[in-house]
């Protein structure tokens, strides 16, 4: 395998004007990601993006966002109708071909023009699940209930996750919600879908992010402390939640094994948990013990931009190496109902 590192990560500003286009969210974000390591768009040899046309409500909207990457003269690029973390995976595979060294990965997502539950509903199987129009909280609650029943954990444990994430998010520029809050106080609120309360669910946001991947020695020249991708894998469980044991996440387990999570101690993990119970279930599935710092950014719980939250976790795991001197971190992305799809990326500094 070729050594490939993340050398840069940038996010769009949290506050955007009404009606802002994804292209204009991405344009300065990509510029910042490249300029931070002294690159320009002309240095990029492969570009891969992630987004969902169902969110923007137009066909081929990702073609417009290509203008932010600079697509003239023609460039080599690809797109996944998924979270940007999967675009990063494709870019990593592309760099393994050994003929190009610099890749740009970006993703963007808007959720302001629609009811997000409507869009998530149409990813369900069209015969048995889609006609139910079940909200995402309802699916999550099924998994939360199954997880609590199996693990013996309590709703208090879930509230503790919410309180810790909000505390960690204090001062983070992207956090939609943060602050000191008492778990007992949170538990006094009504259920939105038992056993889940409002604090158990992530806060939706709009967003855009960009990552720069560089292969080999060039990464060291561009970045003082690159984060080498030591393992990356993604796995999928059955598309039908009713056919799964929701109290466990085999796909997360497999992805962790494929990425070599257990090969050495992980210091920090950024997990794409859209609900509090998902974080606990993921820690267990990925084999992360109590010595691992979970979601120091506050995680997806405090800011969940669709299609961007997973790539952001990998970006935050990179920051833990570049800015905070950690040696081995983990970024995780998820997609589909009840943690159906999981991607695990293990990063190492030197």
């Amino acid at each position: 395998m070729r050594d490939i590192a993340i050398v840069s990560f940038a996010q769009a500003e949290k506050d955007q004007p009404e009606g802002q286009t994804e292209t204009l969210m991405l344009l300065p974000t990509i510029t910042r990601a490249l300029e931070a390591v002294g690159l320009t768009r002309k240095d990029v040899e492969f570009t891969c993006s992630g987004s969902a046309d169902y969110l923007s409500g137009g066909v081929f909207t990702f073609v417009q966002t290509l203008s932010a990457a600079g697509a003239w003269p023609p460039i080599s690029e690809s797109h996944v109708e998924m979270d940007g973390a999967w675009a990063l995976y494709e870019a990593w595979v592309r760099l393994q071909h050994d003929d190009v060294d610099v890749a740009l990965v970006y993703s963007s997502g808007k959720n302001v023009a629609l009811d997000f539950d409507d869009v998530l509903n149409i990813q369900m199987d069209p015969y048995y699940l889609m006609p139910l129009c079940a909200r995402r909280d309802a699916f999550a609650a099924l998994q939360a209930q199954a997880y609590l029943a199996r693990s013996g954990r309590s709703e208090k444990d879930l509230a503790d996750v919410a309180a810790r994430c909000r505390r960690s998010a204090v001062g983070h520029p992207m956090a939609e919600v943060s602050g000191e809050v008492d778990a007992a106080e949170l538990l006094a609120n009504e259920y939105v879908a038992a056993p889940l309360r409002a604090h158990d669910a992530s806060v939706l946001a709009l967003g855009a992010a960009a990552v720069v991947l560089v292969a080999g020695e060039r990464a060291r020249e561009l970045c003082e402390r690159p984060a080498w991708i030591r393992g990356i894998d993604h796995r999928v469980d059955s598309h039908y939640p009713g056919a799964r044991d929701l109290s466990v996440s085999p796909s997360a387990q497999l992805a962790a094994r494929g990425a070599g999570v257990a090969d050495a101690p992980v210091e920090v993990a950024e997990l794409c948990a859209s609900y509090t119970h998902e974080e606990l279930l993921l820690c267990e599935s990925l084999g992360l013990g109590s010595d691992v710092a979970i979601n120091p950014s506050g995680g997806a719980l405090v800011s969940n931009p669709p299609m961007v939250a997973g790539l952001t976790r990998i970006g935050e795991a990179f920051r833990q190496i570049r800015d905070h001197g950690h040696r081995r971190t983990l970024g995780h992305a998820s997609s589909g109902p009840c943690l159906q799809q999981n991607l695990v990326c293990v990063l190492e500094g030197e």
């Binding site: 009606g19 169902y54 023009a113 629609l114 009811d115 409507d118 869009v119 149409i122 889609m130």
Partner: peptide
Amino acid sequence: VSVEYDTKPS
């Protein structure tokens, strides 16, 4: 099922 969009001009 359907999805309704309320798109704001840029």
